[in-house]
């Protein structure tokens, strides 16, 4: 595989940051509407499609890439979007299905993953910067 200096790692990081940012938005919606009668909690799901895109499709059925111009076996990162799913089970009497405790757990998880991915991105970027700066000396 032809790996360039600015490889597609950055694209994966960007996608992950973007999706986690959207997930935070969905959590903010749920928390803000925790007392709205009839409101259904929502979840943003993207892990499976992101994993498939990164690993180039189904792990057992990876297509061979003999040329850098070839497309991966079904894994196109730009096609990965989050799917919004409504939670309809386990609601209160007023039809609201938000569980604030659970939302705050997800919030903690999301901010932690975001922190990790942004840290990884920053380190990779600073590694590249080092390579660029010391290369000419």
């Amino acid at each position: 595989m032809a790996s360039s200096l600015f490889s597609d790692k950055f694209a994966v990081f960007e996608k992950s940051l973007n999706l986690h940012q959207q997930r935070l938005g969905v959590i903010a919606n749920n928390v803000a509407n925790a007392d709205t009668p009839g409101y259904k909690a929502k979840r943003l799901e993207f892990e499976d499609s992101l994993r498939q895109a990164v690993s180039g499709g189904d792990e057992n059925l990876t297509m061979a890439r003999t040329h850098p111009g070839h497309m991966g076996g079904g894994g196109d990162l730009s096609q990965v979007t989050g799917q919004v799913r409504e939670v309809t089970q386990g609601g209160r009497v007023d039809g609201n299905t938000v569980n604030t405790q659970q939302e705050l757990e997800r919030l903690g998880e999301t901010r932690l993953i975001y922190q990790v991915v942004s840290e990884l991105t920053a380190r990779r970027a600073s590694g590249l910067k080092d390579a660029i700066q010391s290369g000419g000396k």
């Binding site: 935070l24 903010a28 928390v31 604030t100 705050l104 901010r111 942004s118 840290e119 920053a122």
Partner: peptide, 29 residues
């Protein structure tokens, strides 16, 4: 009590958004 708790939960989402924005800003440093 319910309003107080819900208020606090909302401040937590705001501070999480703020923290994430700060993390994103640190990428360029």
């Amino acid at each position: 009590m319910g309003a107080t708790r819900a208020y606090k939960a909302n401040t937590m989402t705001i501070s999480a958004a703020r923290e994430m924005a700060m993390n994103a800003l640190r990428i360029g440093q």
